[in-house]
């Protein structure tokens, strides 16, 4: 069993990766599992904000089929 989700990357996390991509992962995949599978080096640039369908989630959030998963490093401005 697998899920297909839309993954969106932003700021420095786009470097060498992608902006937006439809991807398939095993059912039960968590946010942090997907981040590691994609190959984001969050030891260098810490994870800032994770959202699923526009709502903030934690790293252990279990993704579901059809989710839009957005991944940001720490960003700020004003």
């Amino acid at each position: 069993m697998s899920i297909t989700i839309t993954v969106k990357l932003f700021a420095q996390y786009r470097d060498g990766l992608f902006k937006v991509k439809e991807m398939t992962f095993p059912k039960g995949s968590t946010a942090i599992y997907v981040i590691d599978e994609i190959g984001i080096d969050h030891s260098k640039l810490p994870i800032g904000v994770l959202m699923v369908n526009g709502v903030h989630v934690e790293e252990d959030f279990v993704l579901e089929n059809g989710n839009v998963f957005t991944i940001f490093p720490k960003v700020g401005g004003g």
């Binding site: 932003f10 700021a11 904000v49 959202m51 526009g54 940001f72 720490k74 960003v75 700020g76 004003g78």
Partner: peptide, 19 residues
């Protein structure tokens, strides 16, 4: 890191994604 690289305009995407 973030502010020097992208400026304050880095906010467009994150505020937009949050609705």
């Amino acid at each position: 890191e973030g502010l020097p690289a992208f400026g304050t305009n880095v906010l467009v995407n994150i505020i937009n994604e949050a609705g």
